[in-house]
Write a protein that binds this DNA or RNA. Structure first.
Lengths: 205, 205
DNA sequence: GTGCTCGTTGAACGGCGGGTCAACACTGAC
DNA sequence: GTCAGTGTTGACCCGCCGTTCAACGAGCAC
């Protein structure tokens, strides 16, 4: 039915949704304009009518991805934890849960990292996202440092935040590649012991 | 010069070398049989004569990559450090140096991670490599735990080794994506403070 | 020399993917 | 009704890519 006017801007959203599904199933390198069109139930030409170029489509998909992903969820139940260290640990644990609940999203981010190696535009966006992620950890990191100024002399909030991000991303990488051998519970216990100077409170099982 | 018998097996090595150069420059997705052939100064047909398929070539390249990358360098100057924690920290620092000295290799590994998402064969190899990397950290991790059994009650060597690997891989990711905003010195200082229960020794500058 | 094998070449094939475009349909303005 | 503009289609072009293959050349056995 050519010419039937859809709610205009919803076409872009519809196509982006289809693009996400294709990318989730076939990867970014397996994403083709035709596949996206088919998945959206539209003709290939229309996809390039709304997004001038495949490259534009990919960037729009990245924007959509970044826009629909909350940076860091500091929910009420976490915010009310008294000890800064416990709060940071709870946050880390929460983020790990997110990792395993949305594997497709995480994988897509990985693929965009790779694209970013060769594409300055994508790299800038991914870099900004990472910086935002670190910044979200910074307040809690600062509190952790303030709570034990002696031990953390010379450590900056940004530095600790970067380490926290590494915890998350490193866990994502390892559990993505070999989910069998990588034990998240052990991992969290080690993280706990590193942060906490006291004997670790039993969080496991 | 057709028919000139080269030292036989060195042809494969020559092609793999060329494949690595192409992959380093254009990425794994930009690697084509023709480009590899041109880079090696050979005809496209010959590449597929020695490696039946492009897929075979990619797997051979991965094997070559894994074979020519030392898992973990525990050099003499590090092995003789008395304190286990100091030794682990020195190792981490050494690994970070490796990261920045061989960025192409690291990037290629990243790309193979992505390939591994959809290719079970590649995933197995990458998983084994990660497991090997963790295993290399395990002895030192065990010594760190043994040196402070109270603090690390319930923490396994494997868990701490996984955290160490996350330190490295997380750093690699962050410094790869935005080298500008990511400060490795700060990062290392934070890592030091986490491991060490004493005030951190000044390693900066 | 004859013939066999193996390494090598480069043209050719088939397919696919990004991008273009003429044609068309529906809407709204006049 | 007419006309312009926008959304939409699907065929088409072109280039690239993986792969195949006939031909050829060098060495070797006899």
């Amino acid at each position: 039915m050519p010419g039937t006017k859809e709610p205009e801007e919803s076409r872009r959203a519809q196509i982006l949704q289809a693009a996400y599904e294709v990318a989730a199933r076939h990867g970014l390198s397996g994403l083709t304009v035709r596949l996206v069109a088919t998945s959206a139930g539209l003709s290939p030409g229309l996809v390039l009518f709304h997004f001038k170029t495949k490259e534009h489509l990919l960037i729009a998909l990245l924007d959509w991805l970044l826009g629909t992903t909350s940076v860091l969820l500091v929910t009420a139940d976490i915010a009310c934890i008294g000890s800064p260290i416990e709060r940071l640990l709870a946050l880390l644990e929460r983020e790990m849960d997110r990792l395993s609940s949305e594997p497709c999203r995480i994988r897509l981010f990985f693929e965009y990292w790779i694209v970013g190696i060769r594409s300055p535009g994508v790299r800038r966006k991914m870099g900004a996202e990472l910086a935002r992620y670190r910044a979200a950890f910074r307040p809690i990191a600062a509190e952790v440092l303030a709570a034990d100024a002696d031990r953390f002399a010379g450590v900056t909030p940004a530095g600790l935040a970067a380490v926290a991000v590494s915890f998350i991303k490193g866990c994502a990488v390892q559990s993505m590649i070999d989910p069998g051998q990588f034990d998240i519970a052990e991992y969290l216990r080690a993280a706990h012991a590193l942060l906490d100077q006291l004997a670790p409170i039993d969080h496991a099982v």
